[in-house]
Structure formats: structure tokens, C-alpha cells
Design a protein around this nucleic acid. Sequence first.
DNA 1: GTAAATTTGTGCTATAAAACATAGTTATAA
DNA 2: TTATAACTATGTTTTATAGCACAAATTTAC
Lengths: 233, 233
Amino acid sequence: MDNNENIDLIPVEDVLTFWDILTPDERNFIKNTLSVQHFKKNEVIQREGDKPTHLMILASGNVKVSKMGTNNRIQIVRILKPGEHFGFRAIIANEPNSTTVTSFEESMVYSICAEHFISILKNNNAFCYRFLEELAFDLAKSDARTVNLTQKHIRGRLAGALCALIENYGLEEDGATISIYLAREDLANLSNMTTSNAIRTLAIFANEGIIALDGRKIKIIDMEKLQRTSKYG
Amino acid sequence: MDNNENIDLIPVEDVLTFWDILTPDERNFIKNTLSVQHFKKNEVIQREGDKPTHLMILASGNVKVSKMGTNNRIQIVRILKPGEHFGFRAIIANEPNSTTVTSFEESMVYSICAEHFISILKNNNAFCYRFLEELAFDLAKSDARTVNLTQKHIRGRLAGALCALIENYGLEEDGATISIYLAREDLANLSNMTTSNAIRTLAIFANEGIIALDGRKIKIIDMEKLQRTSKYG
DNA sequence: GTAAATTTGTGCTATAAAACATAGTTATAA
DNA sequence: TTATAACTATGTTTTATAGCACAAATTTAC
């Protein structure tokens, strides 16, 4: 596996979405100080409450960002795909991590030391602005999620989560199967419900011809009905 | 009333928390282009879905930031006090406003044209970094609110909202009365419950000796019990 | 290849909270 | 000052969903 790491590792330039706005010096510096880490399935990459040490960029795999709530109930607040960053909010706010990041599957992560990251933020205005934009998008998404999770009923919440997954990960070549296979429990933590209810409601959706299930594969049969369910329950 | 406006208007320098990091040119420019608006109680200052036109700074009064959810149910996502900004997230993300801002009470608002704001962001790195920090704090608060509202029961949610109000607005000279008087409906929209349940639960808290009620005034009798209720319901 | 553990699936029960109904009370306007 | 509207209060009913129990299926470990 260690051998494979090097083989399918995506080069920095292709993963870092902010590569274009770095100066040649910054690029060299990052290339020289960047580190790569490999994570197995279900490994914790970053823990809520810990001091943040690195800006991290997901090179491959998928990770979930979650918060621990009451009675050890987990709330997944977002899911990241390759090219997306994490760990920077806490660095910028100079606070402990407010979330835990865990790999869903085998994942590769590039990381840039917090001090270097801040130093670039404070010297490269365009870089700083890029992250400002990113946080502006994330904040709106977070507020929207609050409303979705608090005001919709179970059917609407689950349908909404499925729509969000499609938007984020897209569909496979068949144009129907969602390109990420989550455990029912993760789906539940994403939609703010118990695992039982996620399972039950998925079965109901399948019965109604909205989706078809094959293990963790979810195939969308009636996209319009799914979106209607997300809106009206 | 128009006369009073000028009398108790706080000078720009004292309201703009970012005044210190502006260049002399920027300060002059802002002083010359800044506009002031007066809002009566319960007026909409900025509407969800509209194009954002100004960075706004609350000079006096109190405003609520809310989102419209399912069945016209309103979710208050945060409440601002003098010195706090709003309207900048949408400008930065170049999106329509994701929230509606409404005055609770008579309020004065300074506003800076969106183009000028962006221009300063793109030229003054320290200014940009200041807003980056602000969004980083707001994002953590939003994620935390999601968990609070989705995982706690009614008692915990309401107690949590009261704690948040105390943290934001403080107590009056008596060291007990919360320094903001909200309608039961606003308290409900803040805690994700129906107005009936907010009223009912407040009455229960009063009965249990946690608070004392006098119209919209809420007096904290047992702070520790309130915090315990926020955590454990 | 078998045992153990985990995940998935389904029914039942208990309960929290919304929805509804109705009345009293306090602001607001004419 | 009275009429009207808005807000506050409380009891009852209904419903959504968490919690529990258990079984089947699948994955993981030895």
C-alpha cells in the first residue's frame, strides 16, 4: 500500500485550487514543506477540541466533518471531496478545532503548516480573498443546513441529504447511482435522525419508486420526486 | 425623530471596528461616501434573495438575522448589537442575500457601498484578514447552533437561547435582567419551537425558580440551573 | 472456514412537541 | 375612550419520531 501511495498521488499543482494565485516563491516554499499523509477507512484525521496545526487538502478519498452533540450523537456538518480544504477555520479563528474530520474511505491528505498558511494569508491579498470567499460560501451553507435540519420532517431531511450528496459527488456512468456509498448510520447523522429511521425511510422511498437500493448503492429512479420530497416531505 | 437622529448618532470612528486598520485615504473615502439610515421597529433592512448592495454596520438598536424555512416558519440565525456588521457575506460570495435582516427596535445603520467595500478588501490585506476572522467565528457559531437546535429538547433549546442572549447583550444594572426584551415569538424563532411552547416553557422555568418574568423582561434567578438546563434539558 | 462483530431491516411502544382551540391581556389606532 | 389588533397564556388532541427489542444479513477477524 505504501508503494501505491506514490503511484496514484495527484501532484500538488492539480489539487491545490489556490495554486494559480501563489507567487513563485510561495510555490517553491509550499512544495518544499508540504507533507502527505495516508489514512485508512474510518480514521480520525483531526479531532474536535484539539489545537489545529495544519491547513489540510484532501488529495484523494472522501472525508466527513462532524460535531459531537448531546448523548454522543454525531452530527455530520459537511462531507469533502478531493481538492477541498479543511482545518483552516480554526487556524484563522485561532481556536481549537470545532469539528472532527474522519475518513470514509482510504484517503490521502496534503498538509501545510499553520504558521506558513497564516503567513501567506497575511502577505498575499488574493490568497486571503480566496479563503474569504470560501468561508462566505460555507457560512451560507451552514445556515441553510440549520434551517433544513430543524424545520423539515424525516422524509424531507433524508431526501435533502440525498440531493446534497448528488450535488457534491454526482452520479456514476449509469446516470443514476450516487457516486458515494455511505453507511446507513452516516446517512442518518447527515440527516439528523436515528439509523433505524434512515433505514426505514430509505425502504419507503424505494417502495415509492423514488430510489432503488443495492447494499450501500443508491440509485435515483425519480429525481423530480426526490426533489419534491426534499421540499415538501 | 429626524432631529434626534443627529443628536445620538455615534461617530463612525467609534462604530467601525475596523477603523484602526484603514489607511488615511480609505478613512477619508469612507467618511465621504458613508450613508446613514434610520429604521423603525420591525422594519426589514435587507431581504433574503435580494442582491446585496452595501456592507452595513449597526450603529444603534438591535436587529435579527433570519431565514425563511418550510411553511413560512422563520429561523433566527443570529442577533446583532451595535458595532456588528451584516450584508457582507453575500457581497463576498457574490450571491443574493441568504438572510433577512429586521430591526427589533429603532435602529441606526451606517452603510458602505458594496463596490467600495470589495475594493478595500482587495487592496488592504489587514482589512481582508479581519473579515476572514469574522467569518471564521461566524461559521463555528453557525455549526454549533445547528447541533444545539437539532439535538436538544425544548427545555435545552430555550435555556440555550437565553444563555446566548446573556452572552451577547449582558445583564442590566441589577445583574439579573437580560438586556434585551424580545417577543415570545422571536424567542421561539430563535430556539426552533412554536410560540406556544416558548411561552409554556418560560412559565415552567419561572415555576422552577430558574427565571422570573415581568412582561418581556426576563430576570435570571438561578444562573447555574439555567446553564445545567441548557446542557441537559 | 467458522465465529464474532457489525450493519441492515422491521415491528412496537413511549413520548416530545406540533397543531389546534380558546381565552385573557396588553398595545395600537381611530 | 373605545374598538381592534397583537401578544400572551394554557389546556387538549394528534402526530412524528426516538427508543427499544430482536432478527437477518453481511463483513471482519481469527
